[in-house]
Design a protein around this nucleic acid. Structure first.
Lengths: 176, 176
DNA sequence: CATTAATTTCAAAAATCCCTGAAAGTACGG
DNA sequence: CCGTACTTTCAGGGATTTTTGAAATTAATG
């Protein structure tokens, strides 16, 4: 699965092992269980840590570090998504912002600008939405997602109401 | 950007070109503009079509096919995400479902089962949420996303109300 | 501070992915 | 049907990514 989550196959396997293991593991355990080279495991663990996906602990009389994943899947997903947001989405937005500053002289420039603006608006909106959503607990998230499509009905009802009553269509939906 | 959207660098460049071009292009145009081999462009276009990311048109007296992207970024994102959902998420869910059917005899099995269940629940919820969300227009989406965090407040208010009034905490939030 | 256990680095090997050009395929007009 | 104009396929080679083992580094212990 991990291959599409921005993480290589091996790193994904290491994480999967830690995720299903009922007990924290050290690097040697992983080396033996997955038959990777010791250094490969070391690299993998380091990368997972850079994504803030691991918890670790030490034991009395044992120098080795023992790793485990957070219990809650939503916490795992949140950490991964937030890291990607910061590493990939934010830089993309910066570049798009730069593009938007370019002078637009020709009709081609206008078109280019419009396209960049459209992309910027969508990504930026999704980005901010995720920052908001991230603060939610797993339970709140569940409620909110189940609400998802139904909230839309409210929206429609309200829009019909507003456009009927007056030209005032610009009030924020959260006033509902 | 595209490299993390499940699409190779070259294919991403082709799409970017079509996206910013103010006029539809044929395969030869792309070959010349990007200096790729003709066959590479052909493969790329084919892949983009398999992701349903292209619109194309023919012109009178010209056998060549002219390509463009949809105008609306949300439509593009929706197509991409839906295709990934079908190609990657649904199969993942099937595999997880199979894992959940395995007999659980030992405490380790129990733990494994719990982990798979946690993962299944999250992915399945997100999957269904997206199916719902996909039906929205760009405008509705915008409203909904801006609502995002605020909706949570409603949720909290309601939960407090319900737990105060009675033990009936199981009513769906959409009844709000 | 020397010893030893554990970890990390890094350059080279192995594996994988991607692009190319030649050849085959397709479809249209005459 | 043939020629023409375009498109697609695919094996080979090149580029990139991933893995490895040897050597360097770090850290705890007597």
């Amino acid at each position: 699965m991990g291959s599409r989550w921005g993480i290589s196959r091996t790193v994904g396997q290491i994480y999967a092992l830690l995720y299903i293991s009922h007990v924290p593991l050290n690097a040697d355990d992983i080396t033996h269980l997955l038959s990777f080279s010791r250094s490969n495991v070391s690299m993998g663990l380091k990368e997972l840590q850079s994504w803030r996906l691991l918890r670790s602990e030490y034991r009395a009389g044992d120098r080795r570090e023992y790793f485990k994943t957070p219990e809650d899947v939503w916490e795992i997903f949140r950490a991964l998504a937030d890291e990607r947001r910061r590493r990939e989405v934010e830089p993309t937005l910066s570049i798009l912002r730069e593009c938007l500053l370019d002078p637009k002289n020709t009709p081609e420039d206008e078109h280019f600008h419009a396209r960049m603006q459209g992309m910027y608006d969508l990504i930026s909106m999704a980005n901010e939405w995720f920052i908001d959503i991230q603060k939610l607990s797993a339970e709140d998230l569940t409620s909110l997602m189940h609400m998802g499509a139904h909230a839309q009905k409210l929206l429609h009802a309200k829009n019909r109401l507003l456009s009927f009553a007056s030209g005032n269509k610009d009030r924020a939906p959260e006033e509902l």
